[in-house]
């Protein structure tokens, strides 16, 4: 087992509730992500965020991204004493949005310039990422000319260039074949491990893929009354620490019986939500 310790809290969802027209959507959602420190290598954080459809994942996703405000509670990052603001947490939506009227280079420069004050430094950073993600020869193309995988990488780079080490990914495994699913998992790991502070939250329905890539899993659901009927307002009902269970940072983990058992356990819990 790899030795590790937990450092400071990087992201905190602090008693977040959300109501629409008096109807509770989220109720007292609390969760946090701590910096994982491995003494001998760079280790970022990956959280798999699971939950049934319509449970409010997207609402919490938008609140974490700073795009929506909760009715009460707040989300903070890097120990700051203020709610997160749009732009501080990168968002990669399911369809990998990019500005269609800008080339790949222009899309990335736009993002880099929002954070870097010096244009030369911004360009250097963009070139570095394009090289790293094998996209340098695509710099002059428009997004519509990219393949699905290239577009995915470009959208991730754009958000990483602009955010404070945080990235929210919405359903990155949706509709992918096995090969692309593995590539996407590798990409997530690669981005996470580019910096100790890089933190990725993957919102997905795919329990196996999430468990294979994440170090923690958040399971969102509702409480039930005595008759078993769901009560309004979702929250994170379960958090799984995969490091503690020695189920992460191992590319071959998905073939091991204990991983299969763990996925079964999560699926059972998922069904009860």
């Amino acid at each position: 087992m790899v030795s590790y310790t937990y450092g400071k809290t990087l992201l905190k969802v602090d008693d977040v509730s959300l109501e629409y027209d008096g109807r509770p959507i989220l109720k007292h959602v609390t969760a946090e992500i701590k910096d994982i420190i491995c003494p001998d290598h760079v280790q970022g954080q990956v959280v798999g965020f699971l939950g049934p459809s319509g449970i409010g994942k997207t609402q919490l996703f938008r609140i974490i991204a700073g795009l929506n405000k909760p009715t009460s509670g707040r989300v903070t990052i890097n120990g700051q004493d203020r709610p997160v603001q749009a732009g501080e947490v990168g968002v990669v939506a399911q369809d990998y949005p990019l500005f269609e009227h800008r080339t790949v280079m222009s899309n990335l420069l736009l993002a880099a310039n929002q954070k870097e004050k010096d244009d030369k430094a911004a360009r250097a950073k963009v070139v570095q990422y394009l090289t790293e993600f094998d996209l340098l020869d695509k710099a002059s193309l428009y997004p519509v000319q990219l393949s699905g995988g290239q577009r995915q990488r470009c959208a991730i780079i754009q958000q990483i260039l602009c955010s404070e080490h945080f990235l929210l990914m919405d359903e990155p495994f949706s509709g992918l074949d096995l090969l692309m699913l593995e590539k996407t998992s590798e990409l997530i790991q690669k981005v996470a491990n580019m910096d100790d502070l890089n933190t990725i939250i993957v919102v997905t329905h795919d329990i196996t893929a999430a468990a294979a890539v994440a170090d923690h899993l958040w399971l969102m659901g509702r409480d039930h009354d005595a008759r078993g009927n769901p009560l309004p307002g979702s929250h994170i009902v379960e958090t799984y620490d995969l490091i503690e269970r020695d189920l992460c940072w191992n590319p071959r983990i998905i073939t091991e019986p204990r991983f299969v058992d763990f996925v079964r356990e999560v699926k059972e819990r998922f069904r009860s939500l």
């Binding site: 991204a65 949005p97 990019l98 500005f99 736009l110 929002q114 955010s163």
Partner: peptide
Amino acid sequence: FDLARTLRMNEWRVVYEVVILG
């Protein structure tokens, strides 16, 4: 609009990027 906002653009810049240029 959300894409522009996640890139730290203020609402006037969002209008320029998404509504005018886009």
